[in-house]
Amino acid sequence: MAELERKTLVVDESGRGDYRTLTEAVAACAETPELPVRFYIKHGIYEERPFIELADYIIEGEYRNATVITASVGGRDPWPGEAKTGTFRSETLFLGGGKAVVRNLTIQNNAGDGAKAGQALAVYADASRVLMEDVNLYGNQDTLFTAPLPLQEREKNGFRGPRENAPRLDTTQYYRCCTIRGNIDFIFGGANAVFDSCRIEPWHHKTGICYITAPSTPAGKPGYLFVDCTVAGNCAPGSVYLGRPWRADAACYWLDCSLSEEVCAGGWDNWHDPENEKTARFGEYGSTGPGSAPARAFGSVDSIAEADAQRTMLARLRAEFGLV
């Protein structure tokens, strides 16, 4: 079967493109959501919250640092008829549907300090396959949510949002050469996700504690892999944890990464529950830098043995995403 031709829609806030906003361009595809499309976004500041449910789409910016999609919505903001917006309605950009590719732009949520604004997503990544390359993701608490949601919420209406009542479907996600910035659980969720050659920036928490990841990996799934990444932000030495388990079977592995002195000696936190140490699968191998600890592990992981399995999975996913 011949591949469908991909149309390109140009987004330009100056009015010299097909549409002035990405939201308008996406709406123009509503009657043909199955057709592949490319959204090319000219440089500019786009204050909007695009929500995308298409089968196969590419979002590409003109300049990585000068094409910016931005919003300022926090989980504690009011919501019509309800007390608050909540985490999963706060996103700047929602990626749903089938295959989503995002390249060469910046996506941010400027709601501010999570202690005041609450959780504030830059991206809610829920497409079945997500590829991001050369993208900046900036936020504070909960910058990047990698779907699916856990099966059960811990507080009433805690999952209020577009997928609260939807089946929990696996997603496969790949982030390459991206910069991801935040402070509390700023990469979290149940996806099978690779972060390849990314810069991870713990940010704006010099006197407090920072948690980079909070996976909620379903039992038996691979979870997160960070490979050839750099952790370097502006936090105090010893104040940053590589991760903590949002759910008991959380999985996260760091392979051949460079870790600054910001990373604490223990590396991992059990989220105030020692029982998580029996089931979570957190490991590290081949790290360098003052924050590294060779073969550091947490939970049911043999860190050295796991390294080979992670390299095998990495090779398979690179091939699947055409990155070899």
Rank of each mutant, 00 (worst) to 15 (best):
M1D: 11
G15W: 09
R16V: 05
T23M: 12
E24Y: 02
E24T: 09
V26S: 06
E31V: 06
F39C: 14
Y46K: 13
P50K: 10
D56T: 11
D56A: 14
D56S: 15
E60Q: 15
G61M: 08
G61N: 11
E62M: 09
A66F: 12
T67F: 07
V73Y: 05
G74V: 01
D77P: 09
T85A: 13
G86F: 02
L93P: 03
L95P: 09
A100R: 11
N104F: 05
L105Y: 07
G114L: 08
G118W: 04
Q119M: 14
L121S: 10
Y124H: 13
R129V: 00
V135K: 11
F145Y: 13
T146A: 15
A147L: 09
A147K: 09
L151K: 14
R154P: 02
E155N: 10
G161H: 05
E164D: 12
A166G: 02
P167A: 02
T171R: 09
Y175N: 08
R176Q: 14
C178Y: 03
I180V: 12
D185E: 12
I187Y: 02
F188K: 12
A193T: 06
I200N: 03
H205L: 11
Y211L: 07
A214T: 06
A214D: 07
P215L: 07
P215G: 07
T217H: 02
P218F: 02
P218V: 00
G220I: 02
P222S: 01
Y224R: 13
D228W: 08
C229W: 05
C229M: 11
A232K: 15
A232V: 04
P237Q: 03
S239F: 01
G243V: 00
W246Q: 07
A251K: 07
W254Q: 04
L255E: 03
D256P: 09
C257A: 09
L259E: 05
L259F: 05
S260K: 06
E261Q: 14
E262C: 09
C264K: 04
G266K: 11
W268R: 00
E275Q: 05
N276D: 00
T279C: 00
E284Q: 12
G291C: 07
A293N: 06
A293Q: 06
A293L: 02
A295C: 12
F298C: 00
I304F: 13
E306C: 05
A315D: 12
